[in-house]
Amino acid sequence: SWRSSVAPPAERPGERRAAEMRKLYGEDASKILAMEAAMQLTFERNCDLKRPKYWPVIPLKL
């Protein structure tokens, strides 16, 4: 196939994350992963749509 003619792909980040999640959450890993993905997507989409700015501009605590 055309894939065999290119360099092997680097380790896929999704797979690595799944393995880490499996170590942390065991049998429930896929459920937690799905919930987190949905939540992160909502967060990122809200940020894309609303363009919120940090408040306060300078962190209160570093």
């Binding site: 919120p52 700015k53 940090y54 408040w55 306060p56 962190p59 605590k61």
Partner: peptide
């Protein structure tokens, strides 16, 4: 609702 008015959209750092 900040002390100097309303900011319509904001991100708050959890560290704060």
């Amino acid at each position: 609702h900040t002390p100097i008015g309303v900011q319509k959209e904001a991100l708050i750092r959890c560290q704060d």
